[in-house]
Simulated scan of single mutants.
Amino acid sequence: MHKPELSGRLAEWAVEISGYDIEYRPRTAIKSQILADFVADFAPAMIPEVDKELLLTSRTSLGVCTLCTDGASNGKGSGLGIVLKPPTGDIIRQYIRSIDLTNNEAEYEATITGLELAKSLGAEIIEAKCDSLLVINQVNGIFEVKDDRMRIYLEKLQVVLHRFKKWTLKHVPRDQNNEADALANLGSSVESEGFNSGVVVQLMSSIIETGHVEINSTSFTWDWRNKYIDYLRTGKIPSDAKESRALRTKAARFCLVDDQLYRRSFYGPLARCLGPGEIDYTMREIHEGTCGNHSGTDSLVRKLIRAGYYWNKMENDARSFVQKCNECQKHAPSIHQPGEELYPVLSPWPFMKWGMDIVGPLPWAPGNMTDYFSK
């Protein structure tokens, strides 16, 4: 403004514009605010999808996990059907080939096994549904337990239920439990000679005999370890040549020790490969456990490797975990940037305010100099 030519041009433009009803306002972030208000006011159907996406990214299991179970016993054998609906929305369906059991024992086995699987996924709140009146009434204390085996099953079921923060066990009619019933019948119909552990889970022994559920839980299709375990056990490869070559190359880094997958490394012992139900607990123990110091992403990954653990996308999971840590957010270093005055933008109704930008053509200034005022 100290240059005479610049102030003169400003005065000239002011005289020209004074004849019109034009009001000058500085540019603000009006467009982004309008779009945000429009989405908030006219897209209420997006709220459930946003909540679902938040639950997926936060890897939390605080929602209600629904479990439907059924047991079947016939001349071909016994089978268990499990339909698990985690709060993330993915449905896990599994049929299990069991040892010879009675119908009531199969119902107990299916319920206890389903609860164990839900707990292994990190579920804290469970809503179990079963079509057996005997199991429901014995758990609620309505029916008296006379058989010794039924009493042991009841004690096992009560122990598993109390491992959850909150649980409900209710009876549903058989016609509302068709999916679990079909899976149970399918598990009981599988011939033991043609049994394939990569297709169906096998219950090795009864729960009341071993004291815990001994199952081949790695047969779930959502576990990243399945393709390596199946290849190392059976040697099966995909039909596609490119996928087959990639699988053989990657599987050379892994090995099986007592049916547990481990990854070889150049600078340490074998690293135990973790599944989805173990990742969050392991990171939490190392990050904020007894010896944890709330380290950053890179340091957390190095500590996990030194502790002997491995899984796919370790860096991404560690970064997401550190960013969501409450203590790290509270005690993180403060940002020492200078404060700036805030300019609130009010928009009573979407698109009530409009902003317009007018550009060019821009004339060339004499002497090949840029005309910053008109630009």
Rank of each mutant, 00 (worst) to 15 (best):
H2C: 12
K3A: 14
G8A: 11
A11V: 11
D21C: 06
P26Q: 08
T28R: 14
A29H: 15
I30Y: 13
I30M: 11
F38N: 09
D70C: 04
D70E: 10
S78V: 09
L80D: 00
I99V: 14
N104L: 04
E105W: 10
A106H: 05
T113F: 00
A123L: 03
A123T: 01
E124D: 07
I125P: 01
A128S: 07
K146W: 03
R151S: 11
H171G: 02
Q176H: 05
A180M: 03
N185H: 08
G187T: 04
V190H: 08
S192V: 12
E209Q: 13
N226Q: 13
L232Q: 07
T234E: 08
I237S: 06
A246F: 10
R253G: 02
R263K: 15
P269D: 15
C273M: 05
P276K: 07
Y281E: 09
T290L: 14
S295G: 10
D298I: 13
S299A: 12
S299Q: 11
K303Y: 01
K313R: 09
C328D: 06
K330C: 07
A332M: 12
H336P: 06
Q337Y: 03
Y343F: 12
D357L: 15
G360F: 05
L362C: 07
M369N: 14
T370E: 11
S374G: 09
